[in-house]
Each structure stands twice: as C-alpha cells, then as structure tokens.
C-alpha cells in the first residue's frame, strides 16, 4: 500500500517534470537553451519514472532490466547532447547570449 502510494508519487512527479521539459523546449529562444530543457527529461524525469516502476517490480529480473535501461540512458544522453551541441557550434550556429539587448530577444521569434 505504502509502496503503491510512493510509486504513484514518483511516476506523477516524473510525468510532470517531463511536461515541464516539453514546455521548456517551446519557451526557450535558442537551440542551446532548448538543449538544457531536453536535458531535464533525459535525467531526473527518466530517473523518477524508472524508480517508480522499480518499486512496483520489487526484487526481480524486471527491476534489473529497469536499472539497465536507466544506465543506458544515463550514459548515452550526455554523449548525444554533447555531440549535438558540438556539431551545432562547428556548423556556425551562434548561441544567443544574455549580453544581447533583451528587447531584441522578443523580435527574433
């Protein structure tokens, strides 16, 4: 019973964080900032949902597989983010930094 409540909380928090990340990739103004929003959904959101499922699985092979999924995501997501950011920088995509005039930021969209 307590485990059910706990895993419900974890799953809901993970889902909510995922939606926050989804909003983030729409509300941020440049590619590099959006990468940070996508980072939320890759890390804590995945952790919360997988651990919520892990509580339901108990000590079983299913829990081991969930842990493996978590490890794979944990190792591949920074590599993918870095590859994306590096490729974007090399292709000449300039990040929009905060030194720019804030009034101008609204124009660009």
């Amino acid at each position: 019973m307590i485990i059910d409540i706990l895993s419900w909380i974890l799953l809901t928090a993970g889902g909510a964080l995922g939606i926050v990340g989804g909003i983030g990739i729409h509300s941020f103004h440049d590619f590099y900032s959006r990468l940070h929003a996508a980072g939320i959904t890759d890390t804590l959101c995945a952790m919360l949902i997988l651990s919520g499922l892990g509580l339901q699985a108990g000590w079983s092979i299913a829990a081991f597989k969930l842990a493996l999924i978590f490890v794979f995501l944990f190792f591949t997501s920074p590599t993918a983010s870095h590859a994306l950011a590096n490729a974007a920088l090399h292709s000449g995509l300039k990040p929009r930094l905060s030194r720019e005039d804030p009034a101008e930021q609204n124009h660009h969209d």
Partner: peptide
C-alpha cells in the same frame, strides 16, 4: 568531468580541448 557537466541540466559541454572546456550554461 565533461559527461558530468553535460548530465547536470543547465550546463552542456560544447567542446573539449587539452586544457580547457567550453561550456554553455543556462
């Protein structure tokens, strides 16, 4: 180090050279 920086949201390692890292921070 570079992976840990990228893994924490809000900071992404963009490029890595021999003695420095270029990081984009939110």
């Amino acid at each position: 180090y570079a992976n840990s920086i990228t893994l924490t949201p809000g900071t992404v390692t963009i490029s890595l050279s021999k003695d420095s890292l270029t990081v984009h921070a939110l």
